[in-house]
Amino acid sequence: MPRYVIERTFPEGLEIPTTTEGMKRCLAAVDDNATEKVTWIHSYVTVDHRKTFCIYDGPTPEAIRRAASLNELPVDSITEVNVLDPYFYVGSPATLLDEHTGRR
C-alpha cells in the first residue's frame, strides 16, 4: 500500500488535550480511517501547533481525502513517499558488490 505525507494547516492551532477526551478523538480517527482502509502511522506537529505532517498508508489519495473529511481534518497537500533511512543501502545487492570489488 502506498505511503503518503499529508500536510495540514490549523490556523487556530491544533489542540488535542492529553485526557480521555483526547484519546477518544484519536481512536475515533483510527476507526474512521479503517472504513477507508487508511492507516495513520504518526504525525509531526510544528512547535506552534499550526501545521502537521502526517504519515499515512492508504490505497489512493481519494481514500486519504475521504478519511480526512470523515475526521474533519484539513488537507493542504498529499505527497506519495518512500521510506529512506541511514541503513537503507547497507546490505543491498549493489553495495555488497562494491564491497566485494573493493570500491568505495
Binding site: 502506498p2 489512493t60 481519494e62 481525502r65 497537500s77 498529499i78
Partner: peptide
Amino acid sequence: VLGRLRIRRGDPG
C-alpha cells in the same frame, strides 16, 4: 476523471 481530478487537486498518481 480520476486522473484529471488528481492533477487538479495536486494529488499524486
